[in-house]
């Protein structure tokens, strides 16, 4: 009797663990941005457990602004998932900046700022990206871009959303409307 009980207890916790695994592997509905002039260019999965996907939007011009919205399946916003996904999103963003501007870059942390992203209070890390042009003088291109990265937990969908936005001084005015256009 006792052995049967222990076996069923082990089974019960294994089933519960399996269900949690299914939860973390369940695909997310990717968070998205709807700001005018920002066009979806890429949607790619980052990893499958926890399920994470990102969307890349670009405001095309000679000085493009780039927005990445990543979505991760979580029951809250755990620090490890937060920093791991944020690091990954930052790497993707830095690669995009290097490719689109044809530069090498130096990223310098400036400060933390509080931002309202689609109705969620979010702390964002604010960076300066110094551009080191590889093909001579930049012409009308800037020598510094702004990068802001932050995350919030979208409780209604059991997803964490990580937002990274890089913009030249030309598009500083876009910041609020871009952040407001992000939703999960």
């Amino acid at each position: 009797m006792n052995r049967k009980k222990v076996a069923s207890a082990v089974m019960v916790y294994l089933i519960a663990a399996g269900i949690y695994l299914a939860f973390f592997s369940y695909p997310v509905a990717p968070a998205h941005a709807s700001a005018d002039s920002y066009v979806l260019q890429k949607e790619e999965r980052i990893y499958s457990t926890p399920y994470a996907i990102y969307r890349l939007y670009v405001r095309e011009s000679s000085q493009p602004a780039i927005l990445i919205v990543a979505t991760v399946r979580t029951p809250f916003l755990p620090s490890k998932t937060y920093s791991r996904t944020m690091g990954m999103v930052q790497d993707i963003m830095e690669r995009e900046v290097k490719e689109r501007y044809g530069v090498d870059i130096d990223v310098v942390f400036k400060k933390e700022i509080n931002v309202d992203i689609g109705g969620h209070d979010t702390v964002m890390q604010d960076y300066d990206i110094h551009l080191k042009y590889l093909n001579g003088l930049p012409g009308i291109r800037p020598d510094t871009l702004k990068m802001d990265i932050g995350a919030y937990f979208c409780q209604e969908r059991y997803e964490s959303v990580i937002v990274a936005y890089v913009y030249p001084p030309l598009y500083t005015g876009d910041f609020d409307r871009v952040m407001q256009s992000v939703s999960c």
Partner: peptide, 20 residues
């Protein structure tokens, strides 16, 4: 949301175990 139901259902085996 289906994700919420999956997450919530993880507690059902434990509930059933104690009831049984």
């Amino acid at each position: 949301d289906i994700a919420a139901l999956i997450f919530a259902s993880a507690s059902l085996p434990i509930l059933a175990f104690h009831a049984v």
